[in-house]
């Protein structure tokens, strides 16, 4: 890959970035949210997907379609999903804390939950991938130039397959917040990136899981690009003391709900013990 001589974080390359203040970004977010709430009062439909056209996230300006998405009925291959198995994913890949010779720094934690389709059916034996910053808010990615320490014992990537109940589970450390160049003094709330497959390719999703009570939520144009407050909340895990291990790790629970299935279920669903 071609390296620019002055290889700072990727956002540096964005000519539209870094000029606004947090106050300006926050005002733009507030305007968009107020317009949405007012619209709801006069009968506008709920918007519980992320907005792909959300100017406070400056990098989105030239990267979102401006024509309407075209409605299509999914056909053939779109009604199925790639299969992944133990050939692809080893059990140890679900533990991000054992990938090196020593223990990573930070708050050890478990994150677990279920992957469900829109009808509430578990998505079984399907691939879940995660990646995240370390406890200091630093990604191992070579373009992350945030002057926080790398952790030689933490890479920050994991994979697992859901079980027969749609349950995924990772052991990791809690990622730190990190600065980025969307605007002056911009900070992302701590998050874990999730990449998930459903039982149909139309359900494919990449998203981010956040931690409860993060003070950076109101300031973050990526999190706030979901206009509906209830929908935003669906990206926030809940702390679950039942998932903790005494004197070892904390626990968070987060379910992922995919869009509805489109395939006509002619075969028996099977596997219901």
């Amino acid at each position: 890959m071609k390296e620019s001589p002055n290889s700072a974080v990727v956002e540096d390359q964005d000519p539209l970035a870094t000029t606004a203040t947090q106050a300006q970004i926050s005002a733009e977010i507030a305007t968009a949210h107020e317009a949405y709430r007012n619209g709801r009062l006069t009968g506008s439909p709920a918007r519980d997907k992320v907005e792909i056209d959300f100017a406070p996230y400056r990098s989105s300006l030239l990267r979102h379609p401006t024509k309407d998405l075209h409605h299509a009925d999914p056909e053939t291959i779109e009604l199925h999903s790639p299969a992944f198995g133990h050939r692809d994913v080893a059990d140890v890949e679900a533990d991000l804390t054992i990938q090196h010779s020593g223990e990573p720094l930070g708050e050890r934690m478990v994150v677990t939950g279920r992957v469900l389709d829109g009808d509430g059916r578990p998505v079984r034996h399907q691939l879940v991938e995660v990646w995240q910053a370390n406890a200091s808010g630093r990604y191992i990615h070579k373009r992350d130039q945030h002057p926080a320490p790398l952790d030689p014992n933490f890479t920050g990537t994991g994979r697992c397959l859901t079980d027969e109940n749609g349950v995924y589970r990772f052991q990791t450390i809690k990622p730190g917040p990190y600065p980025w160049r969307n605007h002056t003094n911009a900070w992302r709330p701590a998050h874990i990136h999730f990449s998930v497959f459903g039982s149909e390719f139309t359900q494919r999703i990449i998203t981010q899981m956040y931690f409860p009570g993060d003070p950076l939520f109101p300031l973050d144009p990526i999190y706030q690009s979901i206009l509906d407050a209830d929908a935003r909340d669906r990206l926030v895990a809940s702390y679950d003391h039942d998932l903790t291990t005494p004197e070892y790790s904390l626990g968070y629970r987060w379910d992922i709900v995919l869009t509805g299935t489109k395939r006509t279920w002619t075969e028996p669903e099977g596997g219901d013990e």
Binding site: D48, K49, H141, Q208, I222, A231, L258, G260
Partner: peptide, 22 residues
Amino acid sequence: MTALKPATPGQTIGPFFGYALP
């Protein structure tokens, strides 16, 4: 048709997927 459970919204893949997804 039964009511669908509300779906989890997507978020951007961000800049730092390069060591994770490929």
